[in-house]
Design a protein around this nucleic acid. Structure first.
Length: 596
RNA sequence: CGGGGCGUGGUGCAGGGGUAGCACGCCACUUUUGGGAAGUGGAGGUCGCAGGUUCGAAUCCUGCCGCCCCGACCA
């Protein structure tokens, strides 16, 4: 491509406040924003995305995936059958067609896959299968963020495994686990697999593949000793041994004007950790359904993690209860506890279950209780981890202090099980002639987010430094000045490289060299080839890696030297990728259990 | 949805009751050509939208819309 023909230009400036890597993508002319969380891709961005697509196809095909294409608009009826029409909040965009039928914009495709499976799969001979697509999703996120990191419309590689039994699912899950490391590594993105919340997907085990970066929106806990890794949404710390002291009788104590943990602790002379803090929430189990009061009990020195509470209650909508709702349930704001309250769902952090004789609210303004014991005083309570794990807390599996890091979720894998098969009637007949449910798994990678992670990992002051595997062009060819000898040679090199299938962005504009160099650095092509009076003087053309030093090769050798450099770049990336994925079998075995 | 910020030529920004500005970019010509060149001339703006106050509103008031950032959600 000649720069004089290219659609879209580089920009000198980009808005303040945006993520640095995203500003570079904007300035380099990869994309343009249309609305909040909605982007157009320009030629450069499209080319990078196409390379990402190719990597995804190769790796998915490599584990036996078959590419399909499913619709972006779904009948609402499908989502009603799976129950997600009710379970998912406004993130699912609903509308009606001209006949008044409910429709939805695809935010994911489990329903459609299960529906396809119901008709396409009927025998155990039709299993196992892996299908995938690379296709647009729309999720009306409450807030888009960080450029391509979190958008409302995005392209996702989503694959689905169909198996006879849980063992088959384990295998497909493991294959994806390993493929995801290869995919990330081929795009130059280091990732870590962490345990994650199943969220709206339902089902069993789930992992997220995190690109660790300070600008990430997720919090991840790692154990440097045993390798435990989990998203904060599901992370747990090792619990202290249960206390063994005598269980004392409940005793009311006046605490006038002391509604906060700090005030009560000071007044009664106890440590905040000795207070069973009760936080009231209002939960809806289905969209628009009836609400109910949920009491979350955590140690007084901890905060409730909403994702964990959501997982524990299965709530769709979850928010802090209003004082009116608390009072209506028989509670007193600031003096809450489950003692004597009926009708409210009570969830308690397991740490409290091991503690004796705590302080809790008395459900009377100005009064608390001493000697609160969870098993005696809130016998109906569900035990589930509810608090955010802090850095330094002991690892649940080995006790070593945990590290806390930030990350961007590059992809995820879910073991769905048979929920969707059941809803859509996706069954097969086994050897014995019995009808069985197809066991499903679901696996996603966001392509735009992948580009965002790559840009975040690979940039410097001057611009993008993308790996050769996903850079829009392999070579930035630059001609300096208008000397006919220069122009002729540059034209020849462009024609020759193009004829050889090398992807070249030829900056043939009549601009000062500084502008051309700056643009090529900004756009991030891995290799620069410069033809100039100076290079001719020095014997030929100049080659320079995006982050390397320049050297001159003879005119006769220019084409061969360029290809050599590109091969070297590819080999270096390949080597890095092998290092990153060398231990992936062992990691899969350690993380998922069993052998690989 | 809560909190904060911002909407002014293509891009990034200043201005803040009385003539709409700067830099970059763009067009033409001339001189330039190894790290975002110089000169001369030029084009380009309903100041987010709608009401209101005022002799007069980009500027003040009200409402709405949009965008960004921090939280609650996810690839």
């Amino acid at each position: 491509m000649r720069a004089t023909q290219l659609f879209g230009n580089t920009l000198r400036s980009a808005p303040e406040g945006e993520l640095e890597s995203h500003r570079l993508l904007l300035r380099a002319g990869y994309l343009q924003q249309l609305a909040a969380g909605i982007f157009s891709l320009l030629p450069l961005g499209t080319r990078s995305m196409e390379k990402i697509r190719r990597i995804l196809r190769e790796e998915m095909d490599g584990i036996g995936g078959q590419e399909i294409s499913m619709p972006v608009v779904h009948p609402g009826e499908l989502w009603q059958r799976s129950g997600r029409w009710q379970k998912v909040d406004q993130t699912l965009v609903r509308f009606q067609d001209r006949r008044g039928r409910d429709m939805a914009l695809a935010m994911t495709h489990e329903e459609v896959v299960a529906d396809l499976t119901a008709t396409q799969v009927s025998s155990y001979r039709d299993l196992p299968r892996i299908v995938y697509q690379i296709q647009t999703k729309f999720r009306d996120e409450p807030r888009s963020r960080g450029g391509l990191v979190r958008t409302r419309e995005f392209v996702m590689k989503d694959s689905y495994s169909l198996d006879r039994d849980p063992a088959g699912l384990q295998h497909a899950y493991r294959e994806h686990f390993k493929a995801y490391f290869r995919i990330a590594a081929r795009a130059g993105i280091p990732v870590a697999a962490v345990l994650s919340d199943v969220g709206m997907m339902g089902g069993g085990m789930a992992h997220e593949f995190m690109y660790l970066t300070e600008v990430g929106e997720d919090t991840v806990l790692f154990c440097s000793n045993c390798g435990y890794a989990a998203n904060q949404e599901v992370a747990e710390a090792r619990r202290p041994d249960p206390e063994t002291g005598e269980v004392l009788p409940l005793q009311e104590v006046a605490t006038p004007g002391s509604a906060t943990v700090a005030e009560v602790a000071a007044l009664l002379g106890v440590d905040p950790s000795r207070i069973a803090k009760t936080v009231a929430y209002w939960a809806e189990r289905s969209r628009g359904g009836p609400g109910e009061l949920v009491l979350a009990l955590v140690p007084g020195d901890s905060e409730v993690n909403l994702a964990k509470l959501r997982a524990a209650t299965g709530a769709v909508e979850l928010r802090a209860a209003t004082p009116e709702e608390i009072t209506a349930g028989g509670g007193a704001p600031g003096y809450m506890s489950p003692v004597g309250l009926r009708g409210a769902t009570v969830v308690a952090d397991p740490v409290l279950g091991g503690r004796r004789n705590l302080v809790a609210g008395a459900n009377r303004e100005g009064w608390h209780l001493r000697n609160f014991n969870l098993d005696r005083d809130a016998p109906g309570a569900t035990l589930a981890p509810l608090t955010s794990v802090q850095a330094g807390e002991p690892c649940p599996s080995c006790g070593h202090p945990l590290d806390l890091r930030r990350g961007i979720e590059f992809g995820n894998i879910f073991q769905l099980g048979t929920d969707y098969s059941q809803a859509m009637g996706a069954t097969y007949t086994d050897e014995a002639g019995r009808e069985q449910l197809v066991v499903m798994g679901s696996y996603g990678i966001g392509l735009g987010r992948m580009l965002a992670c790559a840009a975040e990992e690979h940039h410097d002051q001057r611009g993008l430094t993308l790996p050769i595997s996903i850079a829009p062009y392999a070579v930035a060819l630059i001609s300096v000045g208008t000397d006919p000898r220069v122009v002729r040679l540059a034209d020849e090199i462009y024609a020759a490289l193009t004829a050889l299938g090398v992807e070249v962005l030829y900056d043939d504009r009549e601009l000062s060299p500084g502008v051309k160099f700056a643009d090529s650095d900004l756009r991030g092509m891995p290799l620069r080839v410069t033809v100039s009076p100076r290079s001719l003087e020095a014997g030929g053309v100049e080659l320079k890696r995006r982050q390397g030093t320049a050297f001159v090769v003879s005119t006769d050798d220019a084409i061969a030297a360029t290809r050599r450099e590109l091969t070297l770049l590819e080999e270096e990336l390949e080597r890095w990728m092998r290092e990153r994925t060398a231990a992936v079998d062992e990691l899969a075995a350690a993380t998922l259990g069993g052998r690989s």
